[in-house]
Structure formats: C-alpha cells, structure tokens
C-alpha cells in the first residue's frame, strides 16, 4: 500500500495537539523533532523561533483526512508537506482501516 510521510511544522509546544488531531483522523503514531525556523529576513543579530516538526507516516487513504483534521484544529495556517515513501518496514501493524 502506498505510504506518505507528513511533515508538519508548528510552534513549540503545539506538537501534542497535532498528534491528537492526527490520531483522531487515523494516524497511528508520530515523531517530534525540536527545530528552529529560518527568519523571513536575515538579520545580523537574529533570534530564530523554535518549532516542533511532527513527522507522521501514514497510508495514502488517511493522508487527506489527517491534513484536514490538523488544519481544522488550528486557527492559524499550518505548514504541512507530504513526502512519498519508497519502501518501508515496521508500519504493517499500525495501519488502521477506513472502517475503524
């Protein structure tokens, strides 16, 4: 089955909300990286805001519903990028089905 990895960038501390929304929409797990974001305008002295980058690996059938669930759960625009997965191991047991 075709799989995708969603990369969701949210302000620091909001990752838990993203994981909850994604799990409600059919995701079976997530990994969170603490990152910092590039500023739109580089300055000589810059403070880069910290972000949580949430990685969610999911089947193609759940991708849209997870994205919609996350976007619907936040008032501000959320950056979500989708990466196609070539091959995988360890995801066979975690996949829910649409009927669940």
């Amino acid at each position: 089955m075709e799989k995708r990895m969603l990369m969701i960038s949210v302000p620091l501390g909001k990752a838990e909300r993203v994981v909850q929304l994604a799990n409600q929409a059919g995701a079976s797990g997530a990994t969170i990286l603490h990152t910092r974001e590039a500023l739109a305008e580089p300055k000589s002295f810059q403070l880069e805001p910290q972000r949580d980058l949430v990685l969610i690996v999911t089947n193609l059938e759940f991708q849209k519903s997870i994205e919609e669930s996350i976007r619907g759960g936040f008032e501000q625009a959320i950056k979500i990028y989708c990466v196609p997965i070539f091959d995988s191991v360890g995801l066979e047991h975690g996949g829910k089905t649409i009927s669940e």
Binding site: D87, S88, G90
Partner: peptide
Amino acid sequence: PKMLRTLDEKMSMSQPHQGIAITFA
C-alpha cells in the same frame, strides 16, 4: 531492500513498537 530486511530480522521491526524504517527517492 537488504537493509530493511536486516532491520526487520535483527530488530524485529515488523513487531509493534520496535521502530520503523522508511526510504525516499
């Protein structure tokens, strides 16, 4: 593909909560 098979065999990745491995082009 051999790497994924080896990870599955040695680290039991096809069992729940043992980790995942994914590859991208």
